[in-house]
Design a protein around this nucleic acid. Structure first.
Lengths: 200, 200, 200, 200
DNA sequence: CATGAATGAGCCTTCATTCAT
DNA sequence: TATGAATGAAGGCTCATTCAT
């Protein structure tokens, strides 16, 4: 009934479709037929390519996480100064969040823990490890403050970025390019050794 | 069969129980009987006090949000310097996130939009408005950078905080008090006017 | 909270209340608490006087049937000519249907068979037997056609009467006193030996 | 487990099954699984074809009413004398009541008002209007008494017929063909102008 | 391979009935 | 004796999954 691009491979179309509806209604709130319909195939076909709904969720998760990882890390000049790397990463993340809002939102959904399998979790850790290395590199080079554990830095930075786009998505905020640049600079600033000593 | 604390009031017990399981499995992933069981009452009893599952969710949300708001804002000395206010808020938030991890996680869940009623949403906006005012006060007093919109500052700050505790909860991080203080200082640092000018 | 007539006996009040709501919503469509509320007592009290919902239904049925029987048969001059008896019965039935529409409707409800107990059924047969005797009397006296079994006559007559008031209740008809008299005469006419021979 | 006639169409089988159990237990007294079981399908299948239980009830009602209407009215020679029309209708009604007792009983159930939708109600009124016209025709032709409103005549006649078969169904009566003919003649007689003047 | 009708376990909700107060 | 909160089986309905075509 709806064979949009007949020779596009079905699993990919199903993953893409699932991503859309998962972002809209959440994983638990999405019925399998709704995914099949969005993909323009029948339920039976979906189950030909994915054993469970859970398997599909994990496939979508890995797919999306990997796309993010690729967009962030591919051809990244790790020999550049940290600030340049930071700006590049920020720009790439922003592009991802803006060009694939569903993907970005999906990755941030809270209730993944209940159905992610070990492989998916490993993938997540992999990306984290990569970012961690970048930070450590910067710390060693003296370009990023060394008085904080890289894990803390990552959590704060990633959280701040997510917070920014989540606020925008929920309508609390209208994000302009200026906002995004300012936010980037503020975040970078917090990664520097404090020049003024502790407050108070 | 299970009258654990016979004279504790049921609605409160049900809200508390719901919070626990919602935090664990998400709202959509939680069956009503699971809530009743956690509360040690029967399903029928739950429905005596809450018309819908949705009504219960909203009650839990409001309850929790209000408790957070109260913990954050009660007896806050708004005439204190911004840094002191900031530290107080950070400490209170940390205490909340550590003492009531379920509550903290629940409030951060993504898929609330689908079932929150107007009253709940209004409550959320109310707390945001309060925090916003604090930031504006600090900006006017020259203690917080004025080159960023308060909304952006809030989003970044709240996001960073959430990111920190979410990473801890997910096991990517073992949070110590030192970590929390450092994170606080880093966040505060990003709220200051940059002393060194933009990078690059 | 609502002790309307404190010394009226409770079972009677409960039967009356049940009749009202049964007529309105049907037996299956009526929740026990609704009956208690209508009676101005608590559910617990209801169960003090009636073992089951079913027991209450049967009590209401018997109560109502007996009241009908009494209104129809008490002080009936069985020595009067059939036409006079007929007119009296018709008038009494009409009064009952008009003064106690709930009772009349309840007695005619179809799905009684599923919960009437033997005693209730016996009562029903008792009233039928009484009417049957009246008809036989008339037949013997040559005042009612003898070419039809009394059972058939009863069924037709009772059905016609019910049909008349049911149509009125359902809004297909606005019943006037003239209508009721005409209907009475038409019914009586059908009980007479045909003066013109069969059709066809 | 029970694929009795595999290629019979399911909605029809479901309507037929529902009619049977509705006639037995009443609509409110019938659980959806009981209908599915009677039809030899699963609950899920029932809900594939009918949105609600209520939708099914209405479908059954319309189906049944229309079948009755068709059996009564199709190829009816309205130019025939009233008596002939009357006899035909009576015969057709009798056939319907005897061949499809569940259908006949279902149509007469009291508590329809609570779940019939406007379309179903319209259908009911349509059939009534048709019968009404036949009566008026007969009245104009002087073959049916003109001193009674057609609505009254309809109510009495339909009620009498229903009463006859209801009595039989409830076991108060063993209906023979002779009974049915006699009843028909008696009913016709009541539709004639009284030749003897009022009784008393 | 693809389809989508069929299945039935499980979800949300109601309600007849009980029992501590 | 009266109350009404508590219970849990059962009802209406959904949806992940299967399988005949």
């Amino acid at each position: 009934m709806t064979p949009p691009r007949p020779n596009e491979d079905k699993p990919a179309r199903l993953r893409a479709a699932a991503l859309v509806v998962f972002a809209r209604t959440g994983v638990h709130g999405t019925a399998v037929p709704a995914i099949a319909e969005q993909a323009g195939v029948s339920v039976g076909t979906l189950y030909r390519y994915f054993e469970h709904k859970e398997a599909l969720v994990n496939a979508v998760f890995r797919d999306t996480k990997q796309r993010l990882a690729h967009r962030l890390m591919s051809e990244l000049d790790v020999s550049a100064p940290s600030r340049a790397i930071f700006d590049t990463l920020w720009a790439r993340l922003s592009a991802f969040a803006q060009e694939e809002p569903d993907a970005f939102q999906f990755l941030e959904m809270q209730d993944h823990d209940s159905y992610l399998d070990p492989q998916s979790r490993a993938l997540e850790l992999g990306l984290l490890a990569q970012v961690r290395q970048l930070i450590q590199l910067g710390q060693t080079a003296g370009l990023i403050r060394s008085d904080m554990r890289p894990e803390i830095i990552m959590a704060l930075f990633w959280g701040a970025f997510v917070g920014l786009f989540k606020a925008a998505r929920r309508g609390y905020l209208q994000l302009t390019d200026t906002d995004i640049s300012q936010a980037r600079d503020a975040c970078w600033q917090s990664l520097q050794t404090d020049q003024r000593g502790p407050g108070k």
